[in-house]
Design a protein around this nucleic acid. Structure first.
Lengths: 110, 110
DNA sequence: TAAATATATCGTCATATGGCGATATGTAGC
DNA sequence: GCTACATATCGCCATATGACGATATATTTA
């Protein structure tokens, strides 16, 4: 079941298209962390976090290794942070665009 | 209903997390195109393409304007292409990683 | 105004996703 | 071997997504 470049791109982007997963990736920012650290950081059930981590793993965003009874996750390719920085720039752009529109709306009401 | 930066990031990434939409964005690469050009390019129903375009619009990826009876779409922020290039690099990396694994598997069988 | 064209929207279906609690699995220590 | 701990997996539910054909809307042309 070989996957095209486009499918891989979609898979990578899909893995990053959830707020919780985005924050998990940020939390892993260059630091390896065990699930036992990740779970209490987010207000989600342990099973939910586990599924998110597995999804990130399947998409090749993170790697994992076990050490005794813990499993440690880390970001596999630091490029993901460059990617996120690009998205940030776009997101900030959308937000400022929206603010501008709101201000124009208010001005027209006044 | 104001949206956080993380939510916007997720929305942008979600809009790009589908192979058809990725290809639509590539097709719009700096060129404005009408729906009548986009639809026949993809093997999808017109209604399907229309929904994809609207989703890209909602996420702020594309802009649109009408000219007579046609609607023309274009990419709103060329940054999206920088983003896609980053994803490409990651996708190629995953693929070569997979190939390497396959080769090692074959070698171990031989 | 009728017909043709371009696009959006609606209704429906099948499948995917995100969430949870409960349970299974695996390791460490007693 | 039993217990505790860490993590993954299962079963379920509600909602989102992607697909389609059919229909609605808007504009141009006849």
């Amino acid at each position: 079941m070989s996957r095209s470049v486009t499918d891989w791109r979609a898979k990578i982007l899909g893995a990053l298209s959830d707020p919780t997963r985005l924050e998990i990736v940020e939390f892993l920012d260059k630091e390896e962390r065990c699930v036992c650290e990740i779970v209490p950081t987010f207000e989600r059930a342990q099973s939910t976090i586990s599924k998110h981590l597995n999804l990130l793993f399947e998409a090749g965003i993170v790697e994992r290794r076990t050490e005794g009874k813990r499993t440690l996750y880390r970001v596999r390719n630091p490029r993901v942070f460059d990617l996120l920085r690009e998205v940030d720039a776009m997101a900030l752009d959308q937000i400022s665009e929206l603010k501008k529109a709101e201000e124009m709306l208010e001005a027209s009401i006044r």
